[in-house]
Nucleic acid binder design. Structure first.
Lengths: 181, 181
DNA sequence: AAAAAACTACCTACTGATAGGTAATTTCAA
DNA sequence: TTGAAATTACCTATCAGTAGGTAGTTTTTT
C-alpha cells in the first residue's frame, strides 16, 4: 500500500472513531490531505473498499500493539489496559465497536471484516484465560472470554459517550478481580 | 403527543435500530406514513428534537417493559431476558447502544438523553443486585452493575452485527452464574 | 516512453430545512 | 348563538449543502 493510501486510511480511522461510518467522506479526507476527492478513488475504488481497508488496518494495529497472549504474565490485565489506552487516545471508543453498532447499514464486506476482528479478540482472550487459569474448564474459558470482550466493548462505548473514562476503569477493575478469583 | 407524532417516533426507532442515527430521515419516515417530509417539521421542529423524543420514548418503553427491580424474584435474570427479547425483535441491538456508538456526531441534547438512559440502567441493576445479594458491599454492587450493563450492551451489539444471537445468550448465561455465586 | 498519481469538471441522489399556503376544526368573545 | 380568531395538520415548491461516483486530462515519477 502506497504512503498516500496509508494516510487516507489513517484519516478515515480517526473520523470513524469520532462519529461513525457516516462521519468520514472522500471529500473531508481529501480536504485534510490537501488533495481532491477524486484522487482518493484512484487508491480505493469506492467507499466500501476503503471501509474494508480501514477495518483490517485497525485489526492489525490493535493486535500488533497487544502482542501474543502467551508473552504476558498477566495477559488479561494487559488486554484491559489496551482498551484504556484506546479510550485515552482521542477520548474515543474502539473503532470496531462503533462500526459494529452500525452493522445494519454497512456493506457486507465491511461487516465480515468486523466479524473476523471479533473472533480474533475472543480467541486472544481465551488463550489469555487458559494461561492464567489452567484449572478452568474449556466451557468456562469460552464463556468468560465472551463476557470480558463484550464488557470492555460496551464499557468503552458508553464511557466515550458519557465522557466518563472512569466507567471503563471501573469495569476493567472488576474484570481483573473476576479472573483473579 | 399526537397520534401522528407517536407514529413518527415509532418509525424512527425502528430505522435507528436498523442502521443508526443517519438511517432515519424525514423523507423516509414521511414516505412510509404517506405524508410529506415537511409535515414532520410541524410535529418536530428539527432532527435534533425528534432524536431526543426518540431516545426518551425508548427509555420509557424499556423500563415500562422491565418493571421495578424490587418486583422480581430474580431481577438479574429478568434483566438479561429483556436484552434477549430486544435482540429477538427485529434481530437488532439496543437502540441506545447504537446511538452511544455514534455519540461523536449526535446533538448534545440527544447525548444527554442517552446519558440519562445509561444512569437509569445502572441504578436498576444496582437495585437488583442489592435484592439478590444482600451481603455484598456497596462497592461490589456498583462495580458489578457496571460490568453487567456493559457486557449486555456489548454483547447485544456484537450479536446483532455477527448475526449470532447465541453470543448474547452465552454472555447472559455467564452473567447469571456470576451473580448466583 | 510508460506507468503512476494526481487533476478538472461534472453527475445523480439525498439531506435537513424553510417559505408560503390551505382546508378543517376548535376556541372564545359579543 | 353566531361570527371572528386562532389552531391543527397537512400541502407544494424550493433551497443550499453534502454524499459517492465517473470520464477524461494533465502532471509527475521512474
Amino acid at each position: 500500500m502506497s504512503e498516500t493510501a496509508n494516510t487516507i486510511v489513517g484519516h478515515a480511522i480517526r473520523m470513524i472513531r469520532q462519529g461513525g461510518y457516516n462521519s468520514f467522506s472522500f471529500r473531508k479526507i481529501a480536504e485534510e490531505m490537501g488533495i481532491k476527492s477524486a484522487s482518493i478513488h484512484y487508491h480505493f475504488p469506492n467507499k466500501e473498499a476503503l471501509g474494508v481497508a480501514v477495518t483490517e488496518r485497525y485489526d492489525e494495529e490493535f493486535f500488533a500493539g497487544l502482542g501474543a497472549a502467551e508473552d504476558h504474565e498477566a495477559p488479561i490485565a494487559h488486554y484491559v489496559e489496551s482498551f484504556e489506552g484506546a479510550l485515552a487516545s482521542q477520548g474515543a471508543a474502539c473503532m470496531c465497536g462503533i462500526l459494529a453498532a452500525e452493522a445494519g447499514q454497512l456493506p457486507e464486506t465491511v461487516r465480515e471484516a468486523l466479524g473476523r476482528f471479533t473472533e480474533r479478540n475472543l480467541r486472544w482472550v481465551e488463550a489469555a484465560l487458559r494461561r492464567e487459569q489452567p484449572g478452568w474448564s474449556e466451557e468456562r474459558v469460552v464463556d468468560t472470554a465472551s463476557v470480558i470482550f463484550s464488557a470492555l466493548e460496551g464499557a468503552i462505548t458508553f464511557a466515550a459517550m458519557a465522557r466518563k473514562p472512569e466507567h471503563l476503569a471501573q469495569v476493567g477493575g472488576q474484570l481483573r478481580r473476576l479472573v483473579a478469583g
